[in-house]
Amino acid sequence: MTSLACKQSSVLIATLLGGALCASAYPEFQSFVVQHSKRPVNCAMCHTHADGPEGTAPGQIGRLNAEEQQRLGMARAAFTPGQNVDSPILNAFGNHIVKSLGKQKFMEIKLAPAQLAELLPVDSDLDKDGIPDVREYLDGTHPVNRHDGHPWLLFKHNFQKSLPQIVLTLVATVAGLWGLGHLLSGFAAATRLKEETADEA
């Protein structure tokens, strides 16, 4: 009981502290990504809502119920890396950042947002699109949307993944065209023969 009360009170303190410190998104990271990738990005890269955590829309702080507020508080209290976080205002990538770095380190690198790419696990690929999250962060593409990514990298990954389907389709297309070509040539030859026979007659 005591430990639970202690945990709850630490969550409450962290919520209040965190709320004061970081109720808004971190625009430093967004500015860095825009500058680095030359692509417009918004808060949806890490947050649930495209306009960030502040507001009353779904996925924003003003709309959270008691259970979600508790999850938010626990996420904000995850100062050290390795803790499983499930913040309702963050998407899978946002939660992944907090889990990988811990809140403390994340806030430390706020003024050097390029470091985030160095500190995140290099092999993590949340959307399984073949492009590591770190690369997606630098490219300004969405780390949890498998349809968004550098077009060439997506092509390479999807081509390898779909090679059997591509080969089968190629074989079917070539065979179909070969058969159709011969069929049409046959029709033409038959018509010619018929004409010649009629002429001779």
Partner: peptide
């Protein structure tokens, strides 16, 4: 994906 040429927002 056709959309990959555009920014996700």
């Amino acid at each position: 994906p056709f959309e990959s040429f555009y920014a996700f927002p």
